[in-house]
Design a protein around this nucleic acid. Structure first.
Lengths: 340, 340
DNA sequence: TCCTCGAATGTGACCGGTAACATACGCCTG
DNA sequence: CAGGCGTATGTTACCGGTCACATTCGAGGA
């Protein structure tokens, strides 16, 4: 910068003014400085700027696993929104288990003086809340898909309860009365919320809830879907539809149903959750609930941007609605099934 | 930091020494400083450190789309490797089309004084090579899955030719003689390379190459797979196996084959490419070529780390081998089909 | 006993910007 | 024509560390 100043025959401060587009610079001077900048291929240092201005224009985002489509989408949304505001996004993947790892990483991000932090960890964090609280004192923090109770931390999430409700409602609207569900692991708040939605839907339709029509997976994967469906079928109680809390659970369930000689959707309708990329391409194309993860990520960033310098006391919970995507895996119940 | 120094009754330099774990500090002093740090909840500023030391411990990574599983994996690998070296990863998604967008973004990263840059853009870049060259003068650059010709830019890629070769070889080993292929868009270098591998395999097995057994998709998606298979079937020439250059192409092809009354793998074997997450769970589980994208990302970062301060003249092309994952979509050709 | 040397610590400049204030100059106004 | 004011620019301190070098002090050797 001093070089540029010297070359243009002005002071460094004037160079700074030109760079920041201040209007108190005479056009002739401005052009001279611009030329010097170009000739020297000068690139201003954001670090130095950060040091004085105490703003790094950098946000941190910590997730459990970006290779999971769910988080990847959130990151994409966050990144796009961040860029819109001229911010960078530093990402960090922290294994579910390694909570001291997380601590160390957050500390490093703090050292980097990030301007805000997005945390995307769907499961309740046992420890680290103290750290999180200390963090919020220094920098705005927004959590994604979490049920943290730390005050002054805003939370952005998909409305899982509503999603479960809508999914079940769809089945009821199509004429189903015996509706089973395969949940995710119930220690996940999202699984609980979807189950709640399912129950609420049954209640509203004045349908009785049957314990043997509820199966819980030990994870969100395909095998759990198969096991779940197996348990449902062996439970004795007949059903014409299944609400699976994830697409993979749904796919697993479908595989199991088929093995038992049941057709989808003719004999059993299936609704999934997530709208993973292949959902539209499996057989049959899966009716599912789409989680607007990009918007979730974008909203998280927006909240941080808006909160910069704002009152930190106000912490809210922002729920985005997950729309039901209708495809081919849901049909009215077969007459025979109804009769049974 | 001055506060800490004052509180501990030492100079700022001594505090700096304690933080950096230098051994020229008396134990008593060290403890005193440590306590002061804790009491003041002092977190050293990485920015200030960067300003003096001219190293930011931050890498940039630019991709076309992280929501694509392919890139997501690369990012995960890169991030993990970066962390191992105490580096941060700033990510940026740049749309395929927006090349001035890319320029602007790279400039910003340059302002951030990143210590290295990973670019993951599979398609040939038309413009921007000048920019890229200027970039390499300032910072080590590694490209992923690219065919850039810029000197001093190292390239990490999956060996697509070898992958295509191995996939086709597998089919030949299983007894197939009439092997069709559905390629990705041929303006992608990777599609070209896989096609080359396919051809090489046929040549080695002394099988004639048939033009009507090669169909090219306009993209890598499912519909292209369906169209491709349709064209192959309508081409008149019989075949007992298909090598699809992506899993989605494979899935599309399978859907089409089924509609025409052909079973997979009994009537037609199918090999995909990518090993996307659902590949193991579709019906039949897809035999495919797995791209070790995590390793690719990790290697890219490692190259940058190793090259820091090293001779920049040496630019290499690093090819990682993509293993074939055998599942159920390949079987020996049916006798009837052979006879046909 | 004096000098030398190493260990422990302090001092001041500097990295590359920004912020606040100072200065120089031309113009308008009373 | 002097005072005041706005515009264009320069000066200096400062952000929070690191680096190179100076300083202090006690121990050991000549």
């Amino acid at each position: 910068m001093r070089d540029v100043a010297r070359r243009a025959g002005v002071s460094h401060q004037t160079v700074s003014r030109v760079i920041n587009g201040e209007d108190t610079v005479a056009p002739a001077t401005r052009d001279r400085v611009r030329r010097a900048i170009r000739e020297l291929e000068y690139v201003p240092s954001a670090i130095a700027r950060s040091l004085s201005s105490d703003r790094t224009h950098t946000l941190g985002m910590v997730t459990t696993d970006i290779s999971d489509h769910f988080f990847a989408e959130a990151v994409v949304g966050a990144e796009a929104e961040a860029r819109k505001h001229g911010l960078f996004l530093i990402i960090g993947t922290v294994e579910e288990a390694a909570s001291d790892d997380e601590g160390a990483y957050l500390r490093l991000m703090l050292e980097q003086r990030i301007d805000g932090l997005v945390i995307a960890r769907p499961r309740r964090r046992v420890a680290g809340d103290a750290l999180l609280r200390r963090l919020t004192e220094r920098v705005p923090v927004v959590e994604i898909a979490s049920d943290v109770a730390v005050p002054s931390v805003e939370v952005v999430d998909v409305d899982n309860r509503q999603g479960g409700l809508d999914a079940t409602n769809l089945l009821i609207e199509r004429g189903h009365r015996a509706i089973a569900t395969v949940t995710g692991p119930l220690d996940w708040p999202s699984a609980q919320a979807r189950l709640e939605g399912y129950r609420e839907s049954l209640r509203r339709a004045k349908l009785a809830e049957t314990a043997s029509l509820i199966a819980s997976g030990k994870d969100w994967g395909l095998e759990s879907g198969e096991h779940g469906a197996t348990r449902l079928l062996d439970g004795g109680k007949r059903f014409t539809a299944v609400f699976a809390q994830s697409d993979l659970l749904a796919l697993g369930a479908i595989a199991c149903l088929r093995r038992r000689g049941l057709r989808v959707p003719e004999d059993v309708s299936v609704v999934g959750y997530d709208d993973i990329p292949v959902a539209a391409f499996v057989d049959p194309p899966l009716t599912t609930v789409r989680q607007p993860m990009r918007e979730v990520g974008a909203l998280a960033v927006r909240l941080i941007v808006e909160r910069t310098g704002r009152d930190r006391a106000a912490a809210h919970r922002h729920l985005l609605r997950a729309p039901v995507i209708e495809r081919k895996s849901v049909a009215p119940p077969a007459v025979t099934a109804l009769r049974a």
